Computed example of a mutant assay.
Amino acid sequence: MEENTIVQSADKVPNLVGVIVNWRAITHQGLMRSQNEDAHWVAHSVKAKTENESSSRYLFAIADGLGGHRGGAIASRTALKSVKEEFHKWQGGAADRMVAQALQQANHKVFCVAQSDPELFQKMQTTLTVVALDENSLTVGHIGDCRLYRLRNGNLELLTRDHTMANDLLKLHLISTDQAAQHPGRHQLTRSVGGELFMNTDIICERTLPGDSYLLCSDGLWSELTPEDIQITMQENDVSSACEKLVRLALRGGAPDNITAIIFRIETIGTQVAPLFSWRTFFRRK
Score class of each variant (00 low, 15 high):
5 T>R: 14
9 S>E: 11
13 V>M: 10
16 L>K: 05
16 L>D: 07
21 V>I: 01
24 R>S: 11
25 A>K: 04
31 L>H: 02
31 L>K: 07
31 L>P: 00
34 S>Q: 09
34 S>I: 10
34 S>T: 12
36 N>Y: 01
39 A>D: 12
43 A>W: 05
44 H>Y: 03
48 A>G: 06
48 A>V: 07
52 N>Q: 13
56 S>E: 12
56 S>Q: 10
62 I>V: 09
63 A>M: 05
63 A>W: 01
64 D>E: 06
67 G>E: 09
69 H>L: 14
71 G>P: 11
73 A>E: 15
74 I>F: 13
74 I>E: 14
76 S>W: 00
81 K>H: 12
84 K>P: 07
92 G>V: 13
94 A>I: 14
94 A>F: 14
98 M>G: 08
98 M>Q: 12
100 A>S: 11
101 Q>W: 04
105 Q>W: 02
106 A>G: 11
109 K>M: 10
109 K>P: 04
110 V>Q: 03
110 V>C: 06
111 F>V: 15
113 V>I: 15
113 V>E: 14
115 Q>K: 15
125 Q>M: 14
127 T>H: 08
129 T>G: 01
129 T>R: 01
132 A>Y: 00
132 A>V: 00
136 N>Y: 03
138 L>R: 11
140 V>R: 07
140 V>G: 02
141 G>I: 03
144 G>Q: 01
145 D>C: 06
150 R>F: 01
151 L>P: 02
156 L>A: 05
159 L>H: 04
160 T>R: 14
161 R>D: 04
162 D>S: 03
164 T>V: 13
167 N>P: 02
169 L>V: 04
170 L>G: 09
172 L>I: 08
180 A>F: 09
182 Q>C: 09
183 H>N: 06
184 P>R: 05
188 Q>C: 14
189 L>Q: 08
193 V>P: 10
196 E>F: 14
198 F>G: 05
199 M>A: 15
199 M>T: 15
207 R>S: 09
208 T>R: 09
209 L>M: 06
209 L>K: 08
210 P>S: 10
211 G>Q: 11
212 D>S: 11
225 L>K: 05
227 P>M: 11
228 E>W: 09
229 D>P: 06
232 I>Y: 04
233 T>Q: 06
235 Q>F: 02
236 E>G: 10
238 D>R: 15
238 D>W: 14
239 V>N: 04
242 A>K: 03
244 E>R: 06
246 L>H: 02
248 R>E: 10
249 L>S: 09
250 A>S: 07
250 A>C: 02
250 A>D: 03
253 G>L: 04
257 D>W: 07
259 I>H: 03
261 A>W: 05
261 A>T: 04
263 I>V: 07
265 R>E: 15
266 I>L: 11
267 E>H: 12
270 G>T: 08
271 T>E: 12
271 T>R: 13
282 F>I: 14
283 F>Y: 11
284 R>D: 05
